[in-house]
Design a binder for these strands. Structure first.
Length: 820
RNA sequence: GCCGAAGUGGCGGAAUGGUAGACGCGGCAGUCUCAAAAACUGUUGGAGGGCGACCUCCGUGUCGGUUCGAGUCCGACCUUCGGCACCA
């Protein structure tokens, strides 16, 4: 009997040895081709849960596989360390965000080390450290210089009782402040933006990168490009400078159907146009919509309401005067913040017109239309009617014709509008990278000169229980001198959105200690772009979208020579518990630590991969984990209990046959495991390894293959298993007397000839129903196969009294007889 | 409402248009044990039939279609999950 498999002993031993030997540290001087395998770095929330492991274990397995295949693999790890929860911890527990975050980093690093991954810890990146955020700030300055960063007004969630800005997640359902319960309103604040909209079209292109269609669609929807026209309506009010009101529409063909105009409540013309007798009503409405939370206002369930301003515009196409209303279903941030109301051909306008008794004029005739009133808006194509010179034109053609007409007359013309808005990066928070800008009463906005970076976060900022941004009241931080004129000046107190930090962290991994630049250009050139990026699909738009923009901006500044950071993207599914996402607030978090100490990291790694296809994810249920544990114990015993080939008795199957079978299964397994790893099919890869193990156990019992062949197959099993269960494989490799380390071994190759089946099961069907299976040589000829099938008793029973009208023969597969 | 993905045993899941249920969990029976656990062996989709080796029928969300043959392809629908959601 061999000693029992003790995972924690084995794992501790090898993790120590690998670390001492710096086995997984990588450099750029290798003759092997490079492979950059990146996993989304975790946010420093406290501990890693099983969901993190679900993201990390399979990607480590695949990185290890690439390493054994001969690549120089960079598979780094770090921490996304700025963000609101650290600040909340500071407020609620009186612990400094830095302390809280770094404690979490220590704990999470310990957990990550217990996973046994090939992370090169010498390249660790932590975004909240000055040596990192110095360069985040530096990038901000570069974007500012390039004209891609600007200041503008944007609404924030404002709690009137706490007198502070709230993040979206601090506003609870119904629009109340999470902390004090007061109704949250919106307030405009000057904030910093990145001009991501400049890249809107390019961000919809995915040429040369391998990203799932699903993510591409999500990102394209996010950009929300729509084609249509801008139309100018004539305004003529004494004392009002503007002589036109411009709207964007995708349906210029319906312009003759305009019976009213709607402005967003925030539209700058509202105040100017509102007639004195309507003033109170209009102001009340604006106040009301300001108070409403974003969620309420944008709810499609809400009935459309609005108020008349008392003003009118003229539709230049037909000279009609139509009333101007305001309504909160019109959004200031999209198009021009004004909409032409065509109730006959737009569902929202229809509802609005019905409510306020506004005329509904049909200008696109539905099929079979007799000139009667509509029951609902008709939004499909039709023939233009009531449209002057355009009558009789099909509406789809009308879109182009009317656009051209508008253009010719100077009333507007073709236009494209995007749903995408510029990226608002200002956060009224402490725990983020300070925006390196200074406000001088004489010079205006002045960037902090590069040599003064980083703008350090003051350590002694006071965290008031109100939750107000501590930087604003930190005098030593705020008060500075103007870099240009040396007069007293004030610092920007907003910090940057953490998506800014995560937009470039993978560049830093290539040269984490570079202190003269965000990265070393040569080392960056060696590693980038990332060959495979894996992570949760929840980042489909935000992170993955921002970072693409960021890299394109760097490319245009000449800082990098590629426009896409990630050559290939693969999203794994999520692990849920109790039918819900794992989260601390729900209290359904599964910590891997107990499973690791009880069963071993190798077991947890393999189990996570085994439960479902990786891209699917699923419910965490540990009832099946014993299957993996048993498998690894079987491998342990299989490898360590000595093998002895038996002398073959006369009547036993020949030694030769057993050997060929073993060879075939071995090579088939190599092929299957390799293909599955390439295709991220970890669950079937493990099934194949289990089948191989079970086969070897049987072969050992029978004992008819020569020692050398058996040993070779066992060694193959260990190498195939090395990425999945790195500790166990290393231990067994050593115990079999091989050199250290199995992880420096090359990946097994299969021989197509040896993997070929010699015999197959030929399926015989009658009218598509399975009637018999016959074992035949692969090379069997068609006539011979038919002969055998017709001889089968089972088949004969179903041919009784029938006439064979057709035979379908699929070599190596089946024979189907069609009878009547 | 729109976009996307998925529906297969008691459970997780497997299956280039060609043997449905690989692999594993659980169950059942057995070996070992004073006993239990662990481990190992066998068995395990449902219904019916045969003393038996076995045989027959049904079966991949529902209803149709294409095909010699459909879990897989096409159409309609139902359900679940994910994303977006008054974007003019």
């Amino acid at each position: 009997m061999v000693a029992r498999y003790n995972p924690s002993e084995v794992e501790k031993k090898w993790q120590q040895k690998w670390a001492e030997d710096r086995l997984y540290e990588v450099g750029e001087g290798s003759s092997r081709p490079k492979w950059y395998a990146l996993t989304m770095f975790p946010y420093t929330s406290g501990d890693l849960h099983i969901g993190h492991w679900y993201a990390m274990a399979p990607s480590d397995v695949r990185a290890r596989f690439k390493r054994m295949q001969g690549y120089n693999v960079l598979h780094p790890m770090g921490f996304d360390a700025f963000g609101l929860p650290a600040e909340n911890a500071a407020i609620s527990r009186g612990i400094h965000p830095f302390t809280w975050t770094m404690q979490n980093v220590d704990n999470m690093r310990r957990q990550l080390k217990s996973l046994g991954a090939i992370y090169d810890w010498s390249r660790e990146v932590i975004t909240c450290l000055p040596e990192y955020y110095k360069w985040t700030q530096w990038f901000f300055l570069k974007l500012y210089e390039a004209g891609l960063a600007y200041r503008g007004k944007a609404p924030v969630n404002w709690c009137p009782r706490c007198q502070t800005v709230l993040a979206n997640e601090q506003v609870v359902t119904g629009g109340f402040c999470e902390r004090c319960g007061a109704t949250v309103s919106r307030r405009d604040l000057e904030q910093w933006f990145f001009r991501i909209t400049k890249y809107a079209d390019e961000l919809m292109q995915y040429d040369g990168i391998d990203w799932s269609e699903r993510i591409q669609i999500m990102q394209r929807n996010w950009v929300g490009k729509s084609q249509g026209a801008d139309i100018s309506f004539a305004l003529d009010y004494p004392g009002v400078e503007e002589k036109e009101l411009r709207v964007f529409t995708t349906r210029p063909d319906t312009t003759f159907g305009v019976t009213f105009m709607v402005l967003a409540p925030e539209h700058p013309l509202v105040a100017k146009l509102t007639s004195p007798e309507r003033k109170t009503e209009v102001e009340d409405y604006i106040a009301l919509s300001r108070r409403e939370s974003e969620v309420e206002r944008l709810s499609t369930e809400k009935e459309k309401d609005g108020v008349f301003t008392g003003a009118y515009v003229v539709n230049r196409l037909n000279g009609e005067s139509v009333p101007i209303w305001i309504a909160d279903y019109v959004l200031m941030g999209y198009g021009t913040g004004a909409v032409m109301g065509v109730p006959a051909h737009d569902e929202r306008d229809f509802a609005f017109a019905q409510k306020y008794n506004l005329p509904i004029r049909v200008v696109i005739a539905p099929p079979e239309w007799q000139g009667g009133e509509l029951e609902a808006a008709y939004i499909d194509p039709g023939v233009m009617v009531n449209s002057g010179q355009f009558n009789g034109l099909p509406s789809q053609q009308g879109i182009a014709v009317v656009s051209d007409f508008l253009e010719a007359k100077g009333y507007g013309g073709r236009a494209i509008t995007y749903r995408l808005r510029d990226w608002l990066i200002s956060r009224q928070r402490y725990w983020g990278a300070p925006i390196p800008m200074i406000y001088c009463s004489d010079c205006g906005i002045v960037p902090v000169p590069e040599e003064y970076l980083p703008v350090l976060l003051p350590e002694d900022a006071e965290f008031r229980p109100t939750g107000e941004s501590p930087l604003k009241y930190c005098e030593p931080f705020v008060n500075t001198t103007c870099p240009r004129c040396s007069a007293p000046a004030k610092r920007e107190t907003d910090t940057m959105d953490t998506f800014m930090c995560s937009s470039w962290y993978f560049l830093r991994y290539t040269s984490p200690n570079c202190d003269t630049a965000p990265f070393d250009a040569d080392r960056l050139k060696y590693w980038m772009p990332v060959d495979i990026y894996t992570g949760g699909a929840e980042h489909a738009v935000m992170h993955l979208f921002y970072t693409r923009f960021f890299i394109k901006a760097l490319r245009d500044m000449g800082l990098v020579d590629f426009g896409e950071p990630f050559a290939r993207l693969f999203n794994q599914g999520i692990i849920i518990t109790q039918r819900q996402k794992m989260s601390k607030s729900r209290g359904n978090v599964i910590n891997p630590d107990e499973y690791v100490s009880e069963l071993g990291a190798d077991v947890v790694r393999a189990y996570l991969m085994f439960i479902a296809p990786w891209e699917q994810g699923g419910e965490w249920d540990d009832s099946g984990i014993s299957g993996i544990s048993r498998w690894l114990k079987r491998v342990w015993n299989l490898v360590l209990e000595p093998y002895a080939a038996r002398v073959i008795a006369e009547n036993k199957p020949s030694d030769d046959k057993a050997l060929r079978d073993l060879e075939r299964i071995t090579h088939q397994t190599i092929k299957k495991v390799t293909d599955d790893l390439e295709g991220f099919r970890f669950n079937t890869m493990i099934a194949a390894l289990m089948e191989f193990t079970n086969y070897l156990i049987k072969a050992k019992e029978i004992g008819t293959v020569a020692d050398s062949a058996w040993r070779e197959s066992v060694d193959t099993l260990l190498r195939l298993q090395a990425p999945t269960t790195p500790h166990l494989a290393e231990e067994l490799w050593q115990r079999r007397g091989h050199g250290y380390s199995i992880h420096n071994q090359s990946w097994p190759q299969w021989d197509e000839e040896l993997a070929k089946d010699e015999e197959i099961t030929l399926v015989v069907q009658v009218n598509g129903k399975l009637r018999d299976r016959i074992t035949v040589p692969v090379s069997i000829a068609e006539t011979e196969a038919k002969q055998l099938a017709l001889e089968s008793q089972r088949v004969k029973a179903h041919l009784e009294g029938k006439e064979i009208i057709k035979m379908i023969y699929v070599p190596g597969r089946l024979l189907n007889m069609v009878v009547r």
